[in-house]
């Protein structure tokens, strides 16, 4: 029969020689191979102690951003919710009252902001849609939880720590993400 490709190899079906029938040389050869693996480098990383570095475009858990003075960037425009292909984001807008200027950056803010982490596909379109650099994807994984309802993350879960009141946590949450220019 004409072979279709020249990749096929002829199988050697000759009866085993005496040395091959002894099996022991083959067994010793195999054992030498396994023994040599003792000295090979182990690819495993001891996970919680040591973490693999992420690529700069890694998309993890969402974070609601604040500016340098600790004011929330979000204006509840709803572009992220529109952009979200999984329809995971809901929000309710409210008007900033006089005296709340230190809390919210602009006149309108999100009174309620929820992301359903069971729906979220971590595509990052919310981050792309946001004109105010108010939401971005961090390097954190979605943590495990016991109940489904706990996966609906409220504003408290999502907001970045205050940069003045809790500077250490703020810098940690910020990570090494380059600050985007806001409009």
């Amino acid at each position: 029969m004409q072979a279709l490709t020249n990749k096929a190899k002829q199988v050697n079906r000759a009866p085993m020689s005496f040395m091959e029938k002894l099996y022991l040389p083959a067994i010793i050869k195999g054992m030498m191979i396994t023994f040599s693996h003792i000295f090979k480098k182990k690819p495993t990383i001891n996970y919680p102690e040591k973490k693999r570095p992420f690529s700069p475009v890694f998309r993890g858990l969402q974070i609601l951003n604040r500016d340098e003075e600790g004011r929330e960037n979000c204006t509840a425009c709803g572009l992220c919710a529109v952009a979200c292909p999984a329809e995971a984001i809901t929000m309710e807008a409210a008007e900033r009252q006089p005296g709340e200027e230190h809390l919210y950056k602009e006149e309108k803010y999100a009174a309620k902001y929820e992301i359903n982490m069971l729906r979220c596909i971590f595509c990052g379109l919310c981050e792309e849609a946001c004109p105010k650099d108010a939401i971005y994807l961090s390097e954190t994984f979605t943590p495990a939880d016991y109940q489904r309802k706990q996966f609906i993350y409220s504003k408290n879960d999502l907001l970045i720590p205050h940069p003045k009141e809790n500077e250490e946590a703020y810098l940690k949450a910020l990570g090494n993400r380059p600050q985007k220019q806001t409009l």
């Binding site: 090979k40 182990k42 690819p43 495993t44």
Partner: peptide, 10 residues
Amino acid sequence: AILQDRRGPN
């Protein structure tokens, strides 16, 4: 584990 390039119980 060591023969299979793993770490084993640690």
